[in-house]
């Protein structure tokens, strides 16, 4: 709770020190001095700072994040419209990173110091060293320009978008089209999702693999594993039944950190792939200097990040095996 108040205070302070005059922006390009003064009054910018903060806070609590200068819509409305596409991307990307990262890390730990380990570690380090947007651009060149397998960007082909309407259930296009049996949309959106999701997976993949490897190695050094081995339990049982369970805790923490990171990483990925989500919205807000939108997103993402970390803490606390 304290952290949340702090977060709101920090974002508020950032909105105050904005270099540009929001009132002038609000009043428009050809505004006169009087129009600007009127806008300042309307926006409450003539009030003392603590009053402004309280107004801001009460607004935030009621879901009012201000109005975007670029779209002229409440930032909250925009966020709600763009969030599902981003969530879909993050979920699929994170799933891919788990699907590849976990086995990679485990394999690496089991075969520690063999060529397998070196290769897995190299892949992992490579994953965290790639500039996201560069990876995205290269995937585009490779899979769109040269191979022609995947589309360059967007979430759905425009003709398909025009001719079919998938009911809006969850906002996850994949899920909605699957449930309602729009196979063409499902396939099309999967093809559109492939490259951005792979790009997103690269970073968490490396970290997850690295973390599960080092946690496993740590656990392998523990007495109870040595005891288990001494009892002659098969290595497979030792690894999967005993060690892995205990190595999951720290990996979960890293995974949550990654999810938060990926949420921000979408800013770059969506901009490159023209994915109609929060990230693209933010990138546009940044290029057009749309401060209310930037601050609104900062606040919302920070809150999501805090909650995510809280969930992980709770999960870890519920698990008696985890030593804090």
């Amino acid at each position: 709770m304290f952290v949340l108040v702090g977060v709101s205070l920090l974002t508020f302070m950032m909105t105050v020190i904005i270099p540009a005059d929001p009132a002038a922006r609000w009043a428009g390009v050809r505004a006169t001095a009087e129009q600007v003064a009127k806008a300042r009054q309307e926006l409450g910018l003539d009030q003392p700072l603590p009053v402004q903060y309280l107004r801001y806070l009460s607004g935030v609590l009621r879901g009012n994040l201000g109005v975007s200068v670029r779209t002229r819509q409440p930032v909250m409305v925009d966020l709600r419209a763009y969030l599902p596409a981003t969530a879909e991307l993050v979920v699929v990307g994170m799933a891919i990173s788990l699907a590849i990262g976990l086995p990679l890390g485990i394999w690496s730990a089991v075969r520690k110091d063999t060529w397998v380990d070196h290769m897995c570690r190299a892949i992992a380090v490579f994953g965290v060293s790639l500039p996201t947007f560069w990876l995205a651009m290269n995937l585009q060149v490779l899979f769109f320009r040269w191979l022609g397998w995947f589309p360059l960007g967007g979430r759905l082909s425009s003709m398909l978008e025009l001719t079919t309407t998938v009911p809006h259930l969850t906002g996850f296009l994949l899920l909605d089209s699957l449930v309602t049996g729009h196979w063409e949309v499902f396939g099309n959106s999967l093809r559109h999702l492939a490259l951005p999701a792979l790009t997103l997976a690269a970073y968490p993949l490396g970290l997850v693999a690295k973390q599960i490897r080092s946690s496993l190695l740590e656990v392998f050094g523990e007495d109870y594993i040595r005891v288990a081995r001494a009892y002659g339990l098969p290595e497979r049982v030792v690894t999967y039944s005993y060690a892995l369970k205990n190595a999951f805790g720290p990996t979960l923490t890293v995974f949550a950190l990654c999810a938060g990171y990926s949420l921000v990483n979408t800013f770059l990925i969506e901009a490159v792939f023209n994915w109609p989500g929060l990230g693209n919205y933010t990138a546009m807000a940044v290029t057009t200097g749309d401060y209310p939108a930037i601050m609104g997103i900062t606040l919302v993402v920070a809150v999501m990040y805090v909650i995510l970390n809280l969930i992980v803490d709770v999960l870890l606390a519920l698990d008696p095996r985890v030593r804090v």
Binding site: I96, A99, I100, L102, P103, I106, W107, W149, F150, G187, L190, R191, A194, R236, Y240, L244
Partner: peptide, 21 residues
């Protein structure tokens, strides 16, 4: 066993994507 399950899952995912491509 675990690794096999994962690799099956990954291959299926890749196959589906390529097929749809």
């Amino acid at each position: 066993k675990g690794i096999r399950a994962w690799s099956v899952a990954v291959s299926v995912l890749l196959l589906v994507t390529v097929a749809l491509a």
